[in-house]
Design a protein around this nucleic acid. Structure first.
Lengths: 109, 109
DNA sequence: TTGACATGATACCATTTGGTACTGCATATA
DNA sequence: TATATGCAGTACCAAATGGTATCATGTCAA
C-alpha cells in the first residue's frame, strides 16, 4: 500500500494564523529565523517551533548557511490540501447544494 | 471596519481528520448525529463537539426535526479557505519556486 | 401516562499545544 | 584568541483540545 498522502500534517500546519502569516511572508523571499521573528511578536524559540510544524507539513524547506537557517516556501506542499478541497467545489453551485441551503436557512431564521 | 472573513474557524475545523471525514459523509446526504456517530468510533457527545466546531467554521448547517438534529454540508463555507490557498498556486510551477526547490533539495540530500 | 429514543448540557480527565526561559554550540569578527 | 551572534535543544508552564460519563429535556409511540 502506498504511503498515505500527508494531509494531516499540512492541515494541522495551516490551522494556526501565525503559521499562515509566515507562509505569506516566505512567499516573497527566503528568510532567517530572526527575520521572521521580527514580525511575529513572540520569541525566536516559539517561531522556531512553528517553523518545525510547517516543515513537518511539507510547506517549507529549511537550509543552513553558516550559522544561519534560511526558510523557503514549498508551495507544492499545499497541493494535497487543495486537491482535497477541490472535491467539494462540485457542491458549491449545483442545485442540490442550493436546495440544501434554502432548506437550512428556512429553519434557522 | 467590515467583519474579518472567518478564515480561522474554518481552518481550525479542517485540522482534524474526524471532522474532514464527517464533511465527506455529509457531502452525500443529510445525516443525524446518531448516524454520523455510527461511523466514528467515539461517543455521540464527542461527535457533537466536532459538529459544533464544523458549524462554527461555517462548514455545515444544522436543523432540528422532531427529536432529531440533521446536519448538512455547507460547501460554500470552504470558499474562504480555497481563496486563501489560491494565492499560493502562483508559486507552484514558476521558475522561482523551482529554483528554490532545487537549492533546498541540494542541502537536504 | 409510561417508556424508549435522540439529543443537549455539564463536569471532569488526559493529552496536546503554544509559549517562555535557559543552556550550550557553532560561526563570524575584532 | 576573545567575543558577540544565530541558532538548537531542553525543561517547564498555562491553556486549549479531544474525549468520556452522567444527567436533564423534549419527542414519539403504545
Amino acid at each position: 500500500m502506498p504511503a498515505a498522502r500527508p494531509l494531516q500534517p499540512a492541515f494541522k500546519a495551516l490551522a494556526d494564523p501565525t503559521r499562515r502569516d509566515i507562509l505569506r511572508r516566505l512567499s516573497a523571499r527566503e528568510m532567517t529565523i530572526a527575520e521572521i521573528t521580527a514580525h511575529c511578536d513572540m520569541t525566536r524559540a516559539a517561531v522556531k517551533k512553528h517553523l518545525v510544524v510547517l516543515k513537518d507539513g511539507n510547506l517549507i524547506h529549511m537550509r543552513h548557511e553558516g550559522r544561519e537557517t534560511l526558510s523557503t516556501l514549498n508551495a507544492q506542499g499545499l497541493k494535497p490540501v487543495t486537491d482535497w478541497l477541490s472535491y467539494f467545489e462540485a457542491f458549491w453551485d449545483d442545485k442540490l447544494s442550493t436546495l440544501q441551503t434554502l432548506l437550512t436557512d428556512e429553519t434557522e431564521t
